[in-house]
Design a protein around this nucleic acid. Sequence first.
DNA 1: AATTTGTTTAACAATTTTGTTAATGCAAAG
DNA 2: CTTTGCATTAACAAAATTGTTAAACAAATT
Lengths: 216, 216
Amino acid sequence: MLIKEKREMKYEKKQNKEQDILIAAEEEFLTKGYDGARTTSIAQRAGVTHAMLHYYFRTKEQLFNRVVEQKFGMVAMTMASVIADLSLPIVERIVHGARAHFDIAAKDPKLPAFMIHEILSNPERSTMIREKVKWITLNVHQNLQAQLDMAANRGEIRKIDAAELLLDIISLNVFSVLIYPFISQIADGFLPNYEDFKVKRKAEIADTIRRKLLIQ
Amino acid sequence: MLIKEKREMKYEKKQNKEQDILIAAEEEFLTKGYDGARTTSIAQRAGVTHAMLHYYFRTKEQLFNRVVEQKFGMVAMTMASVIADLSLPIVERIVHGARAHFDIAAKDPKLPAFMIHEILSNPERSTMIREKVKWITLNVHQNLQAQLDMAANRGEIRKIDAAELLLDIISLNVFSVLIYPFISQIADGFLPNYEDFKVKRKAEIADTIRRKLLIQ
DNA sequence: AATTTGTTTAACAATTTTGTTAATGCAAAG
DNA sequence: CTTTGCATTAACAAAATTGTTAAACAAATT
């Protein structure tokens, strides 16, 4: 009993340091990118010596991979939950999905810029990122196209390409949350705070998507 | 006469090397970012020794600033030409502007990702980028809001916030061209080539924007 | 208590990257 | 033809950054 407790304490202690480093690394990598990130800086953030960082993760690149793995695993899980309620009418179902996606994007505003920059700046290193994104996207696309085709055949919406619609939703949502920091610096003064901005923007995007689906 | 020619040759030679370095630097900085870029690599691309690079530009940061200055100067000029033909009806005028903006974005697909990453990863260093973007955006916004208000008062379109519309157009255009490299890797095989993709995407976005403006 | 196992530290080593300098070349001007 | 000014090179220096190692340490096992 006593022994078991102590063993757990030791295990926890190790776990914590490793996790501390991972958390610090995520912050550093997501804002500065692989090249801008410094292992010493990450170690500092995590409150450990940089030798410890190398002890747990050996190299910067291995640490990077662990961070990417963990982060995209979480995003993939969240994405899976977007699958909209099939009982809703098609238009509401898609608009609801778009709003849910907005929230996901808003929760991790730095992720898309990170992804894009990494894949652009070093495609080989970021194979894993591409694989993860591919996996997530293909599922959603197939599912969506089937739903759109059925609804279009029933005359509920106009005929529409799922890839285009998906790209619209992703573009509008991701870019909006991605760019807020700039807007706030550009339009300082006459801009609502982040929360108000998000509410208004989400509604506007939902409306834009709804209008896209109408037959008219 | 002979003397003058020789003097020009010498001058040209210098000009060329400096320009060569600037061109190579733009490629390197835009794809790898400030942190990922290497002055030695830039020098190699430009076909000069890296000592030459330092001779002309002293430091990496000064070279970076020159590249940013030059690049955003060109973009600002191109943007100015988007100002749509006022003789067109409002809806067509805006849709035309959106299409023109798509072409600008498509001409420099790496620029937005570069901007975003730099401002995020090192706000102090990229003050100049922010200033340039601010200057460009504010003009367009004011102009657009005035046009929208007039048209809405005449009952030609619904009342709409220029900032939201602008954000829609920029999001859709920029993100679309930005993300093509990924899509092509994700959906290899059943994806049109870049030219076809752009044509279809531009039309789709134009339609999306048009639908946004309708009163209905 | 002694041993084993994994953790932590500090000092060091290696490499990469930026930046400098002194010497050389070369064309134009006096 | 010598001097002047800029361009160019190669070698070097300095700094930053990643990665290693040997020794100290702590906790659990025997």
